[in-house]
Design a protein around this nucleic acid. Structure first.
Lengths: 121, 121
DNA sequence: ACAAGTACTTACCCTAAAGTATGTATCATG
DNA sequence: CATGATACATACTTTAGGGTAAGTACTTGT
């Protein structure tokens, strides 16, 4: 009946939605659980890996590095490593990453409105 | 070493992040895969269940109704059912749901900037 | 010589989210 | 009398994301 029953996977649906829906496109980039949190912490300036780790204590190292790598691959953050030992690696937002801050801000603003009772949910 | 190793689950981490991070709070509400798309389609006015189904052909009925129920439970959309047969059910954004539109707009705006090459990722 | 700090990597497991498929109730219409 | 349309519900399966635990390399400090 519906087209998707013939041969469908999550990936194909994602493909469809990615092309059609700008919102989905964004969710692809920042939908990972810790990604917006990482972006938020980088919004105040560049940070070392260990600084991020301390700033977000609940994240595991695997998740942190995994999301950082993905954000880097997606062109949202820039990694800079100084060839010293112990390693000195900093992460900062790219132009595109900085461009996402209005999204983060809009989210935060809505959340505060809810908490302040301006929106009752 | 890190605090979470003592006794941690996704849920506990989520609990932590929910209290601390407004962004995570928003992601809890609209993080479901089809939720932002549904909100987007409702932004132009109320829609019947079947209209949404046709507007988003890639979504399965289970996902559509599941997300609609969650959005309703989260106070973002309002369901109105006329007691007729065949059923006539419309969904529309609540005040809180409407308050999320700036988030959706910011997302869309960023996505278009990327596609127009203003941000190169 | 051994721990500690840096920035990772990797193998394995578990669960929540998403997808598949089918069923339900009611009435109008052919 | 059976089909179609509406708005769902539900049992079952799959997959992708996240978590756990452990290890790596290199140097400084004790």
């Amino acid at each position: 009946m519906t087209a998707i029953k013939e041969s469908s996977t999550i990936q194909e649906n994602k493909q469809y939605a990615l092309e059609k829906c700008p919102v989905t496109f964004v969710m692809e980039k920042i939908g990972g659980y810790w990604k917006p949190i990482i972006l938020y912490h980088l919004s105040t300036g560049d940070k070392r890996y260990s600084e991020l780790k301390r700033a977000i204590p609940a994240v595991t190292e695997k998740m942190l590095i995994q999301h950082l790598k993905q954000l880097e691959a997606d062109g949202l953050v820039i990694r800079e490593a100084k060839p010293v030992v112990p390693p000195f690696v900093t992460y900062r937002l790219s132009n595109a990453g900085t461009g996402l801050l209005p999204v983060i801000d809009a989210m935060a603003s809505w959340a505060f409105k809810v908490k302040d009772g301006i929106h009752n949910i």
